[in-house]
Amino acid sequence: MLGVDDVAAQLGSIGFRCRGCGACCRRVAEDSNLVLVSPAEVRTIMAATGMAWGEVAEPYPDFIGTDNGAEYTLAWCLRRTADACIFLQDGRCSIYAHRPWICRTYPFMLVDDDLRVSECPGLGTPLSPYDARNAAADLCRRQVAEGVEEDGIRAVFHEATVPPGKRVVIDSEGVKVLDG
C-alpha cells in the first residue's frame, strides 16, 4: 500500500484544482456518474438530509442471477436522475460536507499501489504541497475504508442466503431484500 508521502508526490506532479463544473456529477456516458457508496456513507447522508435510505441510494445496477431465481448485487450507488446525481442542485453539490469518499477524492483513486486518474478539466493545475498531502491522506483513508467494506461484504456473502425469486443487495451490514 502506498504511503501518504508517495501519493502526495504523485498528486503534486499531476496537479489538480476542482473547477466546480459539476461534470463528474453529470451523466455523460452510461454509468459515468455512478457513485458507489457504503452503508455508512448512506447513513451519513441520511442523517444530514433527513432522507430515507431509498431516497439516497439505489442498488448497483449489475445483478447476478442464482439457481433459485434470485438475483443479488454487492453495492449501493447514490440515486441519479436521467442526467445527474440527485444531489447536484444549481450546479453545486447539496451534500458537499457529507459527500462520499469517491466524490471527495475525485478524479483520483488508489488501486493497490497504483494511482488512477479519471478525466477532469481541473487536472494539470498546480497543487500546493499542503493540498497534495491533504488529498493524499484522503485517498489513503478512502482505500482503507473501501478495504473494510470489501472485507465486510466478503464475510456476509460467505454466510448469505438469498431468498428464492428475490432481488437483494449484499453489503457489509447483511442481505437487504429489495421491494418489488
Results as ranks from 00 to 15, higher is better:
D90L: 05
R43M: 11
E41R: 00
I64N: 14
A8P: 01
G12T: 02
W53I: 04
G147Q: 10
P164A: 11
C18G: 08
F16E: 01
A137R: 13
A137K: 09
L123W: 09
V168S: 09
V156M: 07
N134I: 11
V37D: 10
Y130K: 13
N134W: 10
R80Y: 06
V144N: 13
T66S: 14
K176H: 15
S128G: 15
R43C: 07
V148N: 10
E159A: 12
C25S: 04
D83P: 00
R99S: 10
L36W: 12
G147S: 12
R167L: 09
V177P: 07
G180E: 15
I95D: 02
G122S: 10
F87E: 06
A155F: 05
A70C: 04
D67K: 00
G69W: 12
E149V: 14
R92T: 14
V169H: 05
I86H: 12
H98G: 00
L74R: 09
S94W: 05
F108Q: 00
I102C: 12
F157P: 10
K166R: 15
Q143L: 10
C25W: 03
E41D: 01
L78R: 00
A145P: 11
L88G: 02
V4L: 01
V28K: 04
A145E: 14
D90R: 06
W53N: 04
P163R: 04
E41L: 05
E173S: 12
P107D: 04
C21F: 07
T49C: 03
D114C: 14
A8K: 01
A84T: 11
R80E: 15
E150A: 15
V4I: 11
I95W: 02
K166S: 15
P59I: 02
L139F: 06
C24T: 02
K176R: 14
D113C: 13
T73W: 03
V177N: 07
W53F: 08
R116P: 01
R142L: 13
E55L: 01
V144I: 15
L178K: 06
A52V: 10
C85N: 09
E149G: 04
T105G: 07
E41C: 00
R116N: 13
A52D: 15
S38T: 15
R154K: 10
I64T: 15
G165D: 14
G54I: 03
L78A: 02
D112F: 11
Q89D: 14
G15L: 01
L110E: 04
D5K: 02
E159R: 14
I64F: 15
A145R: 02
C140E: 13
P100N: 08
C120I: 12
I153K: 08
A70R: 04
S32G: 04
P61F: 00
G152A: 08
R79E: 06
V28H: 11
C24S: 07
P61D: 01
A160Q: 08
T125L: 13
D151V: 10
V111C: 09
R27S: 15
R27M: 13
